[in-house]
Simulated assay, not measured.
Amino acid sequence: MEGNRDDLMRIIQSRYPKLSKGQKLIAEFILKHYDKAAFLTAAKLGSSVGVSESTVVRFAIELGYEGYPELQKSLQDLVKVKLTTVQRLELTHNLVDTENALKGVLKADMENIRSTLEKINEKTFDEMINAIFEARNIYIIGLRSSNTLADFLAFYLNLFLENVRSVHQGYSDIFEQMIKLNEKDLVIAIGFPRYSQKTIEALDFAKERKAKVCAITDSLLSPLAARADYSLIAQSNMASFVDSLVAPLSVINAVIVSVGMKKKEQVGEVFGILEEIWAKHDIFN
């Protein structure tokens, strides 16, 4: 990751002498504040250094990008794993209109789902579903902000599979919970920037035990994907200091539905029994 950053910075430095006066101002700003520049629109970046939006676009093209969005994405890929929550909070006003946060966040989430739909690999998705049915035991781990996603997946898979284990940090060490893991098992790991070190260590442990690993994460460059046999990529670009997990949740929904459709009869029986239990014990209003 650091090497990628240095490559981009070297490109900017090598092109610097040939840049126009306005483009040099942009280059200097990015070299000094690339973490902030990554989350500025072309218009706001131009305003920050005193040049027009079109100058920013031409600067991106001069670096070899098709346009500013491609340059911005390269910058975001470099910094999003390193930003602290405080830094995210400082950048939020650049990502979301404070006067209309509702629409800003919803639009960002819609874009994350659209991008995920375009990029996700259906063959990998099918291979993961097959791996779920082939596994002796399925271990699901997602820590910190990904914990909710992991619990959601485990909750529904537990309704119609008998071999699902949810791995949590706290009441016992994660390695103790995975002590019987072997090559017949599958680990499903969920993680997004900033990636939990414990999740990464759990996957290293899984690989040592020769278990199959599936990652639900944001990029093939993710440390989870680097350790996985199957990687489902879900866009999670943040719209604020809060992680955007809408697209990952949609992918997890698809996993649950796909598994459920393959066990249609069992699912019908389970929910029939559950409806009787819910009615008997007044679970729902």
Rank of each mutant, 00 (worst) to 15 (best):
I256Y: 01
V242T: 03
V86Y: 01
I120E: 02
Y34L: 09
K184D: 12
F29C: 05
G64F: 10
E90I: 03
V57C: 10
G260N: 13
A42P: 13
M1R: 15
T148S: 05
K36L: 01
G272W: 05
L25H: 10
V96Q: 08
A279S: 15
Q72P: 03
V255Q: 05
P223H: 10
R114S: 10
Y34V: 00
K280Q: 11
D126K: 15
M1I: 09
K119G: 00
L75E: 14
S20G: 13
F160T: 05
L181K: 07
I233R: 06
S14V: 04
V167D: 14
T98G: 01
L232I: 00
L117N: 04
L8C: 15
E62K: 15
W278R: 12
T148Y: 05
A189L: 03
L249S: 12
N163P: 11
R227Q: 12
P69M: 00
N112Y: 02
L106D: 00
D126C: 06
G46M: 09
E111I: 00
L274M: 09
E265Y: 02
I283C: 13
G260E: 11
K103P: 11
A37V: 13
L78V: 01
V257G: 02
L91M: 09
N237M: 02
L157I: 07
D243I: 04
E275N: 04
V164K: 09
P17H: 15
N237K: 07
E62L: 08
V259R: 03
V257R: 11
S54H: 02
E276N: 03
V57I: 10
I273G: 03
V57S: 06
Y68E: 12
S231P: 00
V242M: 15
N4R: 07
L249R: 08
L186R: 01
I26G: 09
D7V: 01
G64N: 09
I30F: 01
K212W: 00
E118P: 04
D243V: 01
N100F: 03
T92C: 11
E2N: 13
H168M: 08
K24N: 10
L153N: 05
G191S: 14
V255W: 02
E90A: 06
I141P: 14
D204F: 11
M178F: 06
K264C: 01
Q87K: 14
K263S: 12
Q235D: 14
N147K: 04
E176V: 14
E276A: 04
K262Y: 02
V267F: 15
K207W: 03
V56M: 09
D243Q: 15
A239S: 12
D229L: 04
N94D: 03
E134Q: 14
S14L: 06
D109F: 08
F160S: 10
L71K: 13
S219D: 04
K210A: 04
V79A: 02
V105P: 15
Y65L: 07
R5P: 08
Q13T: 06
R58F: 07
R144V: 03
I138P: 05
A108M: 12
S146I: 07
K210N: 12
D173K: 05
A234C: 09
P223D: 02
